[in-house]
Amino acid sequence: MKNQKKGITRKEAIKKMGKYAAITAVGTYTILNPLKAQVTSPPDPGGDPLGVGG
């Protein structure tokens, strides 16, 4: 990290930092919640198969 004190560019610093260079990209995550109950394939969104408005 001595190079940083010499005023190199951010890009150069990242290149020299090895594994922690990734932190500038901050990493990505996805959160996944399974369903709470068993279901079959969902029908059309908002569809009302019985026409009862339920």
Binding site: I23, V26, G27, T28, Y29, T30, I31, L32, N33
Partner: peptide, 15 residues
């Protein structure tokens, strides 16, 4: 507690 799954990449895992 929440039965939550998460996929993270190695960058996120480091931090």
């Amino acid at each position: 507690k929440t039965n939550t799954y998460s996929i993270i990449d190695t960058d996120f895992q480091e931090i």
